[in-house]
Write a protein that binds this DNA or RNA. Structure first.
Length: 722
DNA sequence: GCACACGAGGAT
DNA sequence: TCCTCGTGTGCC
């Protein structure tokens, strides 16, 4: 480009001519002839910088600097990463525009749909787009990119989904899994509407189901496979988000059973797995497969909610009550809620499925946003195992045995079931004996140094503080001076040991994050005791002969608002792996749990419980009947952020609760001499949730622009408080 | 997170 | 009057 044409370029831009002309006069490299301005979103933490910045596109980068690519730009004195959102002819910025320094790669990793989604998620949860994009777009892996480029050269028509001729066996398999949905009221209609290109929204309560020998998978995964195939054969993109790798494995097997195959680095396929824990290279490679529309179906863990799927027609969230689907990173948007938002933005169908029912899912039904898809009572009864609650009243006749952790009745049931197959034992705590108390007065044993709870790591070990790690040798009770300890919560490690003694000759397997062998995906269909923590129950072909759900009281004793729904969720999750009653399947809930969740399990009615819990929340003005935000951190900083929320002064139904002192975040500081942080809760009617989020975000932007001190964390719908 | 602008206060 | 230091804010 000549000097003159560069000068003309300046007049195309709505910028004062002088600074740019000076650059041109110095003979700096030319800028792009068409659309020389790139609108860029930057990877910067401060809230007030969460906006679009304009940069000039050097001519050499004209072709590469397409919307969606990663770029490096100068921002003040630092080099920062960003994404090009769009190209434009003009800018509204009245200073000198900097040039893009580098286009990191040609891959347009941020699709327009995901950019819109990221903006919407940031707005909805008072966060920044940069935070959301860190969750949505995996880190670049250059070698994975090269491998992908090679494949694209081989492909005569890159960018188009490969058209695969369905083989007849696969089609009949598809028919079979489609029949799965006839078991559910509203199931056939749901498939029909997805197939017709509609955007139905459903809360699906999956029937308890055993996993029959592959390829005839007939449990929940068969249902998900049928949904995915239905949408895909209508030419629509699909995302299925599941709690963990085991669940993704299980769905993958069900999809394979319908004749599909997984797309990997070496082989093309029909769907791709997107998992953060697969490692940087496979993760980025799978991401590129979805991006290039090699496949239209993505299954994966929570970050898959942001997958770049073209022509998205169906989003599914499986087991939305699972903790893994809550996002631990700012702005803390849970997978279910991200998918719900995305389904609205992209006109896709939405399905949240579970064996249980969260109160949040119930709220989607109550508001009329989604429809219920569930089986009739007699179908549920014929699929479910027999459930009995062994409470102390039930066991009154047993005398001394009633108070035992494993009452005689439970022992007898397990003994009988072990003749037929494996028996699942669910224990709500991992480890050995996590917490100990004084054996005489039962006061909980505290660390003499920091007053944290003491625990035992092994049978003969010294009690150790679970906060500061102090070994409390020679411990004495603060209350009564006694020196003997007893366990108050017994973990799965101790249970496995106890059971080994109670059932000599029977193999004992353990499954859980802290179990010696980790989490087991499946176990053999032969007699064994399988001790698992909630969510880590291995599946077994043909189902368990029985399940013992131990320490039921521990599951419902929590002060958390969600204790009941979570307990029932854990229990039905485990009980769903047991054979139906007609095949002798039996589930025993052992311990005195709260009556409502106990009855919900015995009657196999998680929806009923969720409905009553929701009614209670409406009564008490608690989420999800209202929207709340928690603002926590240093007292002054919290007060400043809250003071700028104008909604508080205008709205009669706006309630400010607190500030109250809270515990230090153990991950951030162990220094307990610092002033205690506080939390203020803001509560508004659901209809004002959007404004609340917006005003909080604006207040955080003011805070960061003014460089107010201290630290503050804002969370909307804070799960940890519920 | 760095650089620069601007205002206050002090030395010349 | 000019210089320096400190605080505040822009960064495209």
């Amino acid at each position: 480009m000549t000097k003159d044409s560069a000068g003309e370029q300046d007049t195309l831009l709505d910028v004062p001519a002088t600074p740019v002309r000076r650059r041109a006069a110095r003979g700096a490299a030319a800028i792009a002839a068409a659309a020389p301005v790139a609108r860029v979103t930057l990877d910067l933490a401060p809230a007030h910088l969460d906006r679009i910045f304009d940069y000039l596109v050097p001519e050499s980068m004209d072709a590469a600097a397409q919307p969606g690519v990663r770029v490096k730009v100068r921002f003040g004195s630092q080099d920062v990463d960003g994404y090009v959102l769009a190209r434009a002819d003009t800018t509204s910025h009245d200073g000198t525009l900097q040039r893009i320094r580098r286009v990191v790669s040609d891959e347009r990793v941020l699709t327009p749909e995901v950019a819109v989604l990221a903006r919407a998620v940031a707005d909805r949860w008072s966060g920044t787009m940069a935070d959301v994009l860190r969750l949505a777009v995996p880190p670049r892996h250059a070698r994975a990119e090269l491998a992908g480029a090679g494949a694209a050269v081989d492909d005569p028509d890159p960018g188009a989904a490969p058209v695969r001729t369905p083989d007849p066996d696969a089609v009949s398999a598809q028919d079979r899994v489609a029949r799965h949905w006839e078991l559910y009221r509203g199931g056939a209609a749901l498939l029909q509407r997805i197939s017709a290109g509609g955007d139905p929204r459903a809360v699906w309560t999956a029937l308890p189901g055993r996993t029959v020998a592959i390829p005839e998978v007939e449990d929940w995964a068969a249902g998900l496979a049928a949904l995915a195939r239905t949408a895909a054969s209508a030419g629509r993109g699909v995302i299925v988000v599941l709690p963990d790798k085991r669940d993704v494995d299980h769905l993958a097997r069900a999809l394979d059973a319908t004749g599909w195959s997984c797309c990997t680095a070496r082989t093309p396929g029909d769907y791709v797995r997107l998992e953060a824990d697969a490692g940087p290279s496979p993760r980025y490679r799978s991401f590129l497969s979805a991006l290039h529309a090699d496949v239209r179906v993505v299954i994966g863990t929570r970050a898959a909610a942001y997958a770049p799927v073209a022509g998205l027609g169906l989003v599914v969230c499986w087991e939305d009550g699972d903790d893994s689907l809550a996002e631990p990173r700012a702005p803390y948007a849970a997978a279910r809620d991200v998918l719900a938002l995305r389904s609205e933005l992209e006109g896709a169908a939405f399905v949240v499925g579970s064996h249980g029912r969260t109160v949040s899912a119930q709220a989607l039904l109550a508001s009329g946003w989604a429809r219920e898809v569930s089986a009739a009572r007699d179908v549920v009864r014929s699929s479910a195992p027999r459930v009995r609650a062994l409470t102390s009243t039930e066991l009154a006749s047993e005398g001394a045995g009633a108070a035992a952790r494993l009452p005689t009745a439970a022992w007898r049931t397990a003994r009988q079931a072990l003749v037929d197959g494996p028996v699942l034992v669910q224990v709500p705590r991992a480890g050995y004996i996590p917490v100990v108390a004084c054996s005489r007065c039962r006061a909980s044993a505290q660390c003499p140094r920091c007053h944290g709870p003491l625990g035992l790591a092994g049978q003969r070990s010294t009690p150790q503080c679970s906060w500061c790690g102090h070994l409390a040798a020679g411990w004495r009770c603060d209350e009564c001076g006694n020196d003997a300890l007893r366990s108050v919560r017994v973990g799965s490690g101790r249970t496995a040991e106890e059971l080994g003694r109670a059932f000599p000759g029977v193999p004992v397997r353990q499954s859980g994050a802290s179990a010696p062998g980790g989490v087991l995906s499946r176990v053999e269909a032969r007699p064994a005791l399988v001790v698992a923590t909630p969510g880590a129950e291995p599946v077994v072909d043909g189902g368990y002969a029985a399940a013992l759900l131990l320490d039921a009281a521990v599951s419902t004793a929590s002060v958390r608002l969600t204790a009941a729904e979570r307990a029932v969720g854990r229990w039905v999750g485990a009980a769903s792996l047991v054979r139906p009653a007609s095949d002798g399947g039996v589930v025993l809930l052992v311990g005195d749990a709260a009556p409502a969740p106990t009855n919900a399990l015995v009657r196999w009615d998680p929806a009923g419980l969720a409905d009553r819990e929701l009614a209670e929340r409406v009564e008490l003005s608690l989420p999800p009947a209202v929207r709340i935000a928690s603002v926590s951190g240093d007292r002054e900083a919290v007060s400043a952020v809250v003071s700028r929320v104008a909604l508080a002064r205008e709205h009669a139904d706006f309630v400010v609760l607190g500030p109250v002192e809270i515990e230090h975040d153990e991950r951030r500081t162990t220094d307990r001499t610092l002033a205690r942080p506080v939390r203020t809760v803001l509560r508004v009617p659901v209809g004002e949730g959007g404004r609340l989020a917006k005003e909080l975000a604006a207040s955080l932007a003011v805070r960061s622009a003014r460089r107010e001190g201290g630290s503050v964390r804002v969370r909307l719908d804070p799960e940890e408080m519920l």
